[in-house]
């Protein structure tokens, strides 16, 4: 191969390279798994993986918006449980309501809970990790109180409530389509709207953002509301998919959501992260967690493998960003 001419100087643009690398890893992984276990690389099997990953994708998109603004939302999974319980109770008491209404209601409920986080961060200036650590416990407590600790089971939910997200269109389930729609909408929002661009500005350099008239707190509030809205939607999806609502659904899921963002290259320091990266991060995690039981790795070691993947991805992220020219005055990155 002839030596490549040196690339012309341009703004550091590490992101596409990183994403294609992750995509390549995913392709290689699927191919390798497919060679050994042909039933894994079939179209229907990959469709199942997408179906299984859809909720993770939607939640990770919301979490990305929050992380881009230099915050974090530990309460997403609790929000899923609370919105899910509210939707399930509504459906139980009004079985005739159309699914679309329930879905919108779930999104509204989720947005309200997200707004609670957002207001605490924006107006009360509580650090996001503290605010959402607190609301995480509060949301779960509220689920327990409004349900009196009881489960809502499949026979108490209408068949249509459970079926809607499983209906297929062009070979994919509605659940998968919702995730695809979510990806498209968030991508458009971040690329083409002012509000979307402001999220990056607010997280990338809050001081500069304030000078050019962007209200950092307000952008953070917006991110929390959107994240909450997606969590509310996932509340409905979770209950419909697993046909059961109770206090502990999705417990601990917030860490998987954050892990998906990290693997997808979203910087916890704010200001960077792409929809494509998050999508790939989720698909990667989805394939790993669907393949582990298939490969038959001892269930006892699955958690360690997960941890190794997260640590490895985080180290690669930092290696990539180390190549960036250092700013003379680093904002106090926390």
């Amino acid at each position: 191969m002839p030596p490549q001419p040196p690339e012309p100087m341009r703004l550091p643009n590490r992101i596409p390279g990183r994403e294609s690398a992750l995509a390549a890893v995913i392709v290689v992984m699927v191919a390798a798994l497919g060679l050994r276990w042909p039933q894994f690389a079939t179209l229907s099997s990959l469709r199942d993986v997408l179906d299984d990953t859809a909720i993770l994708i939607l939640l990770a998109l919301g979490q990305m918006l929050v992380i881009v603004t230099r915050c974090i939302d530990l309460s997403v999974a609790a929000n899923v449980a609370l919105s899910g319980m509210i939707v399930a109770q509504l459906e139980q008491s009004h079985p005739s309501l159309p699914i679309l209404v329930l879905m919108i209601f779930g999104m509204l409920a989720g947005s309200v809970f997200g707004a609670v986080n957002g207001l605490l961060v924006w107006l009360v200036r509580v650090p996001s990790i503290v605010a959402t650590l607190g609301t995480m416990a509060m949301f779960r407590g509220i689920v327990y109180l409004i349900s009196a600790g009881r489960w809502i089971n499949s026979d108490q939910l209408s068949p249509q409530f459970q079926q809607e997200i499983r209906d297929t269109w062009l070979g994919l389930s509605m659940l998968s389509w919702l995730a695809i729609a979510g990806v498209a909408l968030i991508a458009l929002l971040l690329r083409y709207t002012n509000a979307g661009r402001r999220l990056y500005l607010a997280g990338g350099n809050p001081a500069a953002a304030a000078y050019v008239g962007v209200q950092v707190g307000r952008s953070q509030f917006n991110a929390f509301v959107l994240c909450g809205m997606l969590a509310g939607l996932c509340g409905y999806l979770w209950v419909a998919r697993f046909a059961v609502a109770y206090t502990d659904i999705a417990s601990g899921f917030e860490l998987q959501v954050i892990a998906a963002c990290v693997i997808g290259g979203v910087s916890i320091r704010g200001g960077s992260g792409t929809v494509a990266g998050v999508l790939l991060g989720c698909v990667f995690l989805g394939i790993v967690r669907n393949a582990l039981p298939l490969v038959g790795i001892s269930p006892f070691w699955q958690m360690a493998v997960n941890g190794l993947v997260i640590v490895g991805a985080a180290m690669l992220n930092e290696q990539a960003s180390a190549e960036q020219p250092r700013r003379i005055l680093e904002p106090d990155a926390k």
Binding site: I72, I129, L255, I258, A259, V262, I268, R269, S298, F300, W301, Q302, M303, A304, V305, N306, G307, L308, I310, V311, A314, M315, N317, E318, Q319, A322
Partner: peptide, 27 residues
């Protein structure tokens, strides 16, 4: 040394350390 933000690094090692504990001891 690797300059991974503490939150991310320790979320990963949390899974890793606990995972090793599970792997070694099992049930």
């Amino acid at each position: 040394v690797c300059r991974v933000p503490a939150l991310v690094a320790t979320i990963g090692t949390m899974s890793l350390f606990r995972g090793i504990a599970y792997g070694v001891l099992g049930d």
